[in-house]
């Protein structure tokens, strides 16, 4: 018995480094480019009917995600999945719920071309961009080009998205040994580890570095069909497999899950512990975990405060 406890302890001791790392404070960013990207990110000019901008579904001033269950795009068409947060997206190992984009550039390309979202293509984007004296001037200034190519539009947007990090969360400061967590928060973190949440939610983004099955332990059923990992790998075992979402700013990005089926964190935690951990948490434990999750709220991306 003691021997077993010892082994567990030993494992923890050997890997004493916390499996979560803080968001780097240094961000090697071309601000001019990023500001141009921000402009594009917020400009509905990138949608066919001038109705939808990137920011329409990715609330960079809130949790970075869409507070709606599914996003509404071009001509009011609904998307097929809950828009994930764009904040700290650069730390995700792949993009989209099912990881079909290797990076932000690939990601950004898709909604622009998606008929349900921006319903544009590179040609129409270039036409619109080059028709705009304001953009022509800005691209000339930033990229020193007289023709605005689609590639440069994406490049600016990606540069902007790369600035969308939320550093200095309380927990990051704790990791950097700058502060101590409150008792409840700390207990929440310990529970988070003990119950195994950490096995999937780890790394700088506390998630976003592996695919996992929604319902490993207990089958999870949705009302609808969602674009899960099986759509990429064509492996039926990968049904309900998604990229583990980041837990940074999770308290600010309700609703939860790919299907936005849970409105509150508590519901989401209960669902996750049932389906993926095979455990039942007490209310007290849930509260503690929520307290911990609150420490993951970071600062607003600095770029948003630059005029």
């Amino acid at each position: 018995m003691n021997k077993l406890a010892l082994i567990v302890l030993l494992f923890i001791c050997i890997y004493a480094d916390e499996p979560i790392s803080p968001i780097p404070l240094k961000n090697n960013i071309n601000t001019e480019k990023a500001k141009l990207g921000q402009l594009l990110f917020c400009d509905p000019i990138l949608s066919q009917d001038n109705s939808t901008a990137c920011v329409s579904c990715h609330d960079i001033y809130g949790g970075g995600a869409d507070s709606r269950a599914v996003s509404i795009g071009f001509a009011g068409r609904e998307g097929n999945i809950h828009a994930p947060s764009v904040l700290n997206a650069k730390y995700n190992f792949k993009q989209f719920w099912n990881g079909r984009a290797e990076n932000l550039l690939e990601q950004a390309n898709e909604p622009i071309n998606n008929p349900l979202e921006h319903a544009m293509n590179f040609h129409s984007i270039e036409q619109r961009m080059n028709a705009s004296p304001m953009y022509k001037e800005k691209f000339q200034k930033v990229y020193h080009v007289s023709f605005i190519s689609y590639r440069l539009v994406l490049d600016a947007i990606v540069e902007f998205e790369n600035t969308l990090t939320t550093p200095n969360a309380k927990f990051d400061k704790f990791l950097r040994h700058e502060i101590k967590l409150d008792k409840e928060e700390e207990e929440g973190y310990i529970l988070f580890k003990q119950y195994g949440c950490i096995t999937c939610h780890n790394g700088v983004n506390i998630g976003g570095n592996s695919f996992q099955k929604m319902g490993t332990f207990l089958e999870y059923t949705s009302k609808k069909e969602y674009p899960d990992r099986s759509k990429v790998t064509h492996d039926k075992n990968h049904k309900n497999v998604f990229k583990v979402p980041t837990l940074r700013n999770i308290t600010l990005s309700a609703p939860y899950f790919h299907d936005a089926s849970k409105q509150t964190l508590k519901e989401a935690i209960i669902a996750m512990s049932e389906h993926n951990l095979g455990i039942k948490l007490s209310d007290q434990e849930i509260e503690k975990i929520i307290a911990f999750l609150h420490t993951l709220e970071g600062e607003r991306p600095y770029i948003l405060d630059i005029k």
Partner: peptide, 29 residues
């Protein structure tokens, strides 16, 4: 790459269950 993805998926579940069992055995006292 696929195997690694698979590994991470399996590993998470196994570890969690193992963690659970460890805790559960303790509770059995």
């Amino acid at each position: 790459s696929q195997n690694v993805e698979e590994f991470l998926m399996l590993s998470a579940g196994i570890k969690n269950s193992l963690l659970f069992l460890t805790r559960h055995v303790e509770n059995g006292i």
